[in-house]
């Protein structure tokens, strides 16, 4: 079996010597202008273990310096070299387009916690609550939820607007959980990293009531074609 790390544009120089999962040497299967980075793998599908996850990530990041990289989701196995060849042949155009999209760019993660008090359910109703009262209570909860969602969108849009013009693409979720106002990933030119950091710091100062967490640079996990 082959364990797959990433699809990259074809290396002009040989890959640096890397050790991937299970200490196997990282190899490269080429086709045209692209290449798949993999290592030999034996046994059952890799378990989700911290050391293994870091190893996968480290291999992907080691490629970032000299290549455009489409990171592959953790745990992807191919049967053999023939399957790899077929994969590169069938998805060639999509991989090429994907590589063009991420070339020279990195992903940055932004999460924002807000202090707004979550919608609390109305106090547990009396045991003899009737159907009508139940629905009235649910109606009030529903309206509060919608109002909160509108408020969250307004707030998140304002924060997002500041960062969006620095990015070439983004993926975001508003209020994915009660306390998370915004969870977003931005695809930015690598050289814009410092500018982005400055913008985040300024955003934090201008919005002292929210908590910001910005991590990166990451390989463009959020910006590859889903399939």
């Amino acid at each position: 079996m082959l364990y797959l790390y990433a699809i990259i544009n074809r290396p002009v120089t040989p890959l640096p010597p890397l050790r991937g999962l299970a200490e196997q040497a990282v190899q490269c299967g080429e086709r045209g202008d692209i290449a798949a980075v993999y290592s030999q793998y034996h046994g059952a599908a890799p378990r989700i273990e911290v050391a293994q996850l870091w190893r996968h990530e480290a291999v992907v990041e080691a490629l970032l310096d000299r290549h455009s990289v489409l990171p592959v989701r953790y745990g992807a196995l191919l049967a053999d070299e023939a399957a790899l060849t077929m994969l590169l042949r069938e998805r060639y155009d999509r991989f090429m387009a994907g590589l063009a999209r991420v070339a020279g760019r990195v992903e940055v993660s932004v999460r924002v916690l807000w202090p707004a008090t979550p919608v609390v359910s109305a106090p547990r109703p009396a045991a003899d609550e009737n159907g009508r009262a139940y629905l009235a209570r649910r109606m009030a909860e529903e309206q509060a939820r919608e109002a909160r969602l509108r408020e969250a969108h307004k707030r998140a849009d304002a924060l997002h607007a500041v960062l969006d013009h620095l990015a070439v693409a983004h993926v975001r979720q508003v209020l994915p959980h009660e306390r998370v106002l915004l969870s977003a990933a931005y695809l930015i030119p690598r050289e814009a990293l410092d500018t982005f950091r400055v913008a985040i710091v300024a955003l934090g100062q201008a919005n002292p009531d929210v908590r910001l967490l910005c991590t990166g640079p990451w390989p463009a996990y959020h910006f590859v074609d889903g399939e």
Partner: peptide, 23 residues
């Protein structure tokens, strides 16, 4: 950082189902 990584590496990235087995 680790949790941010988990969020990406397990959930995003190229999915190649069909040709390969994904865990």
């Amino acid at each position: 950082t680790l949790l941010d990584l988990l969020d990406r590496i397990l959930d995003k990235g190229v999915i190649i189902s069909g040709d390969i087995t994904i865990s």
